[in-house]
Design a protein around this nucleic acid. Structure first.
Lengths: 289, 289
DNA sequence: GTTCCGCATGAATCGATAG
DNA sequence: ACTATCGATTCATGCGGAA
């Protein structure tokens, strides 16, 4: 089956109107922060931010499948020595719009931007707000499990009688599930704190977030051939990662240069995929070592 | 000079009225969370939480020095599959009251409560909201730079292996590149993310937060002989740490048993301080190894 | 005196059951 | 319908006893 990556140039609010209702499995985006990126987006004043964003979230609510998820990467900036409140106001307004605010993940940026101020430390975290349409949504937790802590090694060496008993009782009618339970014990479910480094020495275009960030949420909230949407595509990280992971995706950006840049990157990948020697393509798909 | 630790039994809203205006350098507290700790505090319904807390923050605003800081440890609970919004509403209301919302620190709890749910991962972070009266406030950044290497070192060292493993696994299946190096991190300036584990060991009285949490903020926002206030004393961690660090402190709690327990602990420490052999006292002061 | 291993214990959350 | 209670689930940590 072919993966379609559908890119659009234009204002998100307008372009979204052409997307059918209940058609998207995951929306992952990092919108222009208030008063940031003046050169590219014209800058939105913090006071106007909520009013500017709400019509877009209204459209996003429409295009998302009932089982889908909206992950919003955002952080309030400091204005006049104080943290702005527009993110909190946005959450409250989106709930009135019909969104459920399911969870707030924290992205802990290990190598945050350097600097020193007299009354403030470096800001090394961002919000990843999870919104849903319904209480029941698709979540593939197994896809993002992580190795357990050190202590697990000793435990696995010699598994106690209680563990054996527990596993057997769990199995019940199942057969051969013992082994899966065993191997599962080596991995644990993650928490709502993500611990990733920002990609610094990257290519020409600097992405707002590292590829592992959308990759994590794509794994968690979609399966292959699902549809991923990023209404503020930027350098296209979400779409490029989605394509590599065999997810269809839609990208929207108002800046034509971004469109071209992303498109060329996508073509590049697709070319590799068509090559008979797929060694490099495989590497790309699986992540470079 | 003698350190005074002034403990009160009673409702915070009432007791605070007896404290003079502009007299406290740091307020560090962890109020009972909504619908939590019913047995001891009766539990406050999420819908009533803001109205319950606002009169208290009003008093806190009065007693705090213009150069002082209020650090509030709080986290919203899940209600009906959604995160509650009372913390956000509280911030908005406190700003109307006159508070400046200067910063939000994240406390990353390594050992969060276990459990598995179909729609949610374990919650492993809490908010540490920093409020101020004025834009200019006292902040002793150097004080936390030294201890950062001290107390965080042992813990981070211990955790590093696991974290490395986890990060690599994330990266391997994802597309990230940069693996953090912890040696650099030890020398780095602190950020607004704190990386501590909860103390779950049985030490007669279980505290809501580890001692290193108030210790960090006491170092950051006060100097010796300053006044620290905790209007929800609980097991008295804030006051005990304050006394060890040679800060005067005020503690308020409505539960008489807590008053007695904290008082006995304080005497204990003072005894050790008076002993000629100060080895144990020193260990206490510097935090156990 | 080290090191290792077993064990209890958390500011949790969901779904089912009961009034 | 709406609220209160209960059992099941799960994992990092530090303490104490043992090798």
């Amino acid at each position: 089956m072919e993966i379609i990556t559908d890119l659009h140039i234009g204002d998100a609010k307008q372009v979204l109107k052409d997307i059918p209702s209940d058609s998207v499995d995951l929306i992952f985006t990092s919108p222009p922060y208030a008063d940031q990126r003046k050169s590219t987006y014209g800058g939105i004043h913090p006071d106007e931010y909520v009013n500017w964003f709400l019509p877009i979230t209204g459209q996003l609510l429409r295009v998302l499948k009932p089982t889908g998820t909206f992950v919003l990467n955002i952080k309030e900036k400091v204005v006049n020595g104080e943290r702005s409140t527009y993110v909190m106001e946005l959450i409250l307004e989106m709930r009135k719009q019909g969104w459920l605010w399911t969870e707030e993940f924290i992205w802990h940026k290990k190598n945050s931007y350097p600097g020193k101020w007299p009354n403030r430390f470096r800001d090394s975290w961002e919000r990843l707000l999870q919104f849903n349409k319904e209480k029941q949504f698709n979540m593939y937790q197994e896809a993002v499990m992580v190795p357990m802590g050190e202590w697990a090694k000793s435990r696995l060496k010699k598994l106690s009688d209680t563990d054996k008993l527990r596993d057997e009782s769990k199995v019940g009618s199942g057969f051969g599930k013992n082994i899966s339970n065993w191997t599962k014990r080596e991995k644990a479910y993650p928490t709502n704190v993500l611990h990733l480094a920002t990609e610094c020495g990257n290519k020409n275009h600097s992405a707002a977030f590292p590829e592992s960030l959308p990759a994590w949420f794509i794994k968690l909230f979609t399966k292959e051939y699902d549809v991923v949407l990023d209404p503020f595509m930027g350098s296209g990280t979400t779409n490029i990662v989605a394509q590599r992971m065999k997810r269809n995706s839609i990208g929207i950006d108002i800046v034509p240069e971004y469109y071209e840049a992303v498109k060329s990157q996508l073509n590049e990948v697709q070319l590799y995929l068509l090559e008979p020697k797929t060694e490099y393509a495989e590497a790309k798909l699986n992540g470079r070592k």
